[in-house]
């Protein structure tokens, strides 16, 4: 967090709404990205990100300045998204109510955009196979380079639980990937044997 952000945070804690809006400008992408990776819907991600900032604004008085602001913010977002995913399981939706799935355009040119979109969909399909807490741990680890301690702090888990969850998630993701994109079948071979035969 740089000097400006610290100043905005101090002002926001004193009730300055404009200062908090500056913080939103800085942190909107990380929060939105986490919500999108968790919920797989642009509309739901927007709603979750908005709600995250609203909760953060209301809870600023409880924020401990010794903690990292981004970790605190992403922790709020992750918990909100986990709740939303759990709620979805108990909600029966009609076909018309299904969320509109259209991630934002990522770059110039239709070809690049198409490839990027395909990658996004592959990533989302993989992430959706995980349970909500494992998903949040994977996103924090691979999109935000969070340490085990930071993930544990954000998701209220012990470090060993984080390690175990990440290990399980990596295995599930690898197996699912192998199912989706079958690797070339190799015959049983002995050491030093040429793979050409």
């Amino acid at each position: 967090m740089n000097e400006f952000e610290s100043e905005w945070l101090r002002k926001a804690q004193r009730g300055d709404q404009a200062a908090f809006a500056c913080l939103i400008e800085v942190y909107q992408t990380p929060v939105y990205n986490l919500c999108y990776r968790m919920l797989s819907s642009a509309n739901d991600a927007e709603d979750a990100a908005q709600e995250t900032f609203l909760r953060a604004y209301q809870g600023l008085s409880r924020y401990d300045n010794r903690r990292s602001f981004s970790t605190w913010l992403l922790s709020i977002a992750a918990h909100y998204c986990i709740d939303q995913i759990r709620r979805r399981r108990f909600t029966v939706m009609s076909f018309e109510e299904l969320p509109y799935f259209d991630p934002p355009d990522l770059g110039p040119g239709p070809e690049r955009s198409l490839v990027a979109k395909e990658k996004q969909q592959q990533v989302q399909a993989l992430l959706e196979s995980l349970n909500p807490q494992d998903r949040a741990a994977v996103v924090m680890r691979y999109w935000y380079d969070f340490s085990y301690e930071e993930i544990g702090e954000s998701l209220s888990l012990t470090i060993s639980a984080v390690k175990s969850r990440l290990h399980r998630a990596r295995r599930e993701l690898a197996l699912l990937w192998a199912e989706q994109v079958p690797l070339p079948q190799t015959v049983e071979r002995t050491r030093h044997e040429s793979p050409a035969f």
């Binding site: 991600a45 990100a49 934002p104 990522l106 996004q120 993989l126 990937w177």
Partner: peptide, 27 residues
């Protein structure tokens, strides 16, 4: 190999940003 592919895919997938005017919509 599968895990390495997945890891590469994650690395190649950038962070998504919300539509323009997010802070205004929040206000």
């Amino acid at each position: 190999e599968s895990w390495n592919d997945v890891h590469r895919l994650f690395d190649a997938t950038p962070r998504l940003a919300p539509a323009i005017g997010f802070a205004d919509r929040w206000q």
